[in-house]
């Protein structure tokens, strides 16, 4: 499964904001940490805002803040804001009505059901625990240090 670019941006943004839920973070800081387009991230954050997952504040010291429930909001909730996922996502395709097409659909549904079950069972709170357990990559270390230094 490959997530669309906007979905990945959204997941990174939510994880970043939820990890520091007591403070507002500039979109530019998030964009810099993950090496992503600030313009694209801004659009993604607006979509997350309309979904009630983050909220923005303007002016000096403005930025974004996570306003969801990290113990209830799961990965599938966020992904579903940006892209369809699951058996209905692909629509009807040529050959679907043949026995072979139906057999192939059974197998693909098994994979999609498993994917949905995995994504819907991992809350943002759990994802942050997984992040903390994950060994940091040395390649991104200088950039992360720069972001931390800027926001300190």
């Amino acid at each position: 499964m490959k997530l669309q670019v906007a979905t990945r941006h959204a997941l990174f943004a939510v994880l970043e904001l939820a990890a520091q839920a007591d403070r507002q973070i500039a979109a530019s800081d998030i964009a810099e940490k993950y090496s992503i387009s600030p313009n694209h991230l801004a659009k993604v954050l607006r979509t997350l805002g309309r979904a009630g997952i983050v909220e923005a504040s303007r002016g000096v010291g403005g930025g974004y803040r996570f306003c969801g429930n990290a113990k209830r909001l799961n990965l599938l909730d966020i992904i579903a804001v940006f892209e369809p996922i699951g058996p209905a996502a692909g629509g009807r395709e040529a050959g679907d009505d043949t026995r072979e097409g139906r057999a192939l659909r059974l197998v693909m549904n098994e994979i999609e059901d498993s994917t949905r079950a995995t994504l819907s069972s991992i809350t943002i709170d759990t994802m942050l625990k997984i992040v903390r357990r994950t060994t940091p990559s040395t390649a991104g270390a200088p950039l992360r240090r720069a972001v931390v230094a800027r926001s300190a």
């Binding site: 113990k71 799961n74 079950a117 819907s120 069972s121 991992i122 759990t126």
Partner: peptide
């Protein structure tokens, strides 16, 4: 069983 799976994930 999303609730129980989320618990074990947590």
């Amino acid at each position: 069983s999303q609730l129980i799976m989320s618990f074990f994930r947590s």
